[in-house]
């Protein structure tokens, strides 16, 4: 333990071991997943994101929404994500294969958004929520995403429209080979 090379070799080994054991084996198992049909011959899931949703994703990313919102639903045995009605099934690796950068998050100051598109009722409801926030909520109003016209009504900017399209596209309302929706 007095030789620099020996210490460096040892530390290199510890890092290499965890790199191989966790990242390489993970890569082998889930690094090459493709879209898959829920049942033989059916349509492929997850569905492609609409173009507007991809733009909205950038808005979501740029505003830092991931700081307070996760996009992952844990299985029923691990926390109460499903019991509280966020989704009918847990999120699995295949749900993320189309995302260039996943926004899985690690902290919930607000609800999980993995299946938000299936929960929200209408565009207008979402716009109203983004513009004014909700009483008692810790989420601020994003008023700068809206402009006020002369007659006093609010018009969403391009960013707001894209963001809403993105939020509405967040759905895991399909069965995947790894996680079936409950019958």
């Amino acid at each position: 333990m007095k030789n620099l090379n020996l210490i460096l070799a040892g530390v290199f080994f510890t890092l290499a071991a965890s790199f191989g054991g966790l990242l390489l084996s993970g890569q082998v198992q889930i690094g090459q997943l493709n879209r898959a049909p829920a049942e033989e011959g059916g349509p492929l899931f997850p569905p492609n994101e609409p173009g507007l949703a991809i733009q909205g994703r950038q808005v979501y990313l740029s505003l830092g929404c991931v700081t307070c919102h996760t996009q992952q639903v844990r299985p029923a045995g691990q926390g109460n994500d499903i019991a509280r009605g966020w989704a009918a099934r847990p999120s699995v690796a295949r749900d993320y294969v189309l995302q260039s950068q996943i926004l899985i998050g690690s902290r919930r100051l607000g609800p999980d958004l993995m299946n938000y598109g299936a929960r929200v009722k209408s565009d207008n409801e979402l716009h109203a929520y983004l513009r004014t926030s909700m009483a008692g909520s810790v989420m601020p109003a994003y008023g700068f995403l809206y402009t006020q016209s002369k007659d006093g009504s609010f018009r969403p900017t391009e960013d707001a429209v894209a963001l809403v399209a993105y939020l509405k596209s967040l759905k895991i309302d399909y069965s995947s080979p790894e996680a079936k929706l409950k019958q």
Binding site: Q27, G31, A93, Y96, V97, S100, Q101
Partner: peptide, 13 residues
């Protein structure tokens, strides 16, 4: 970038 959920694993490491 690695694919989808792999990113979460890499990041946690």
């Amino acid at each position: 970038p690695t694919l989808g959920a792999m990113q979460a694993l890499v990041h946690s490491w």
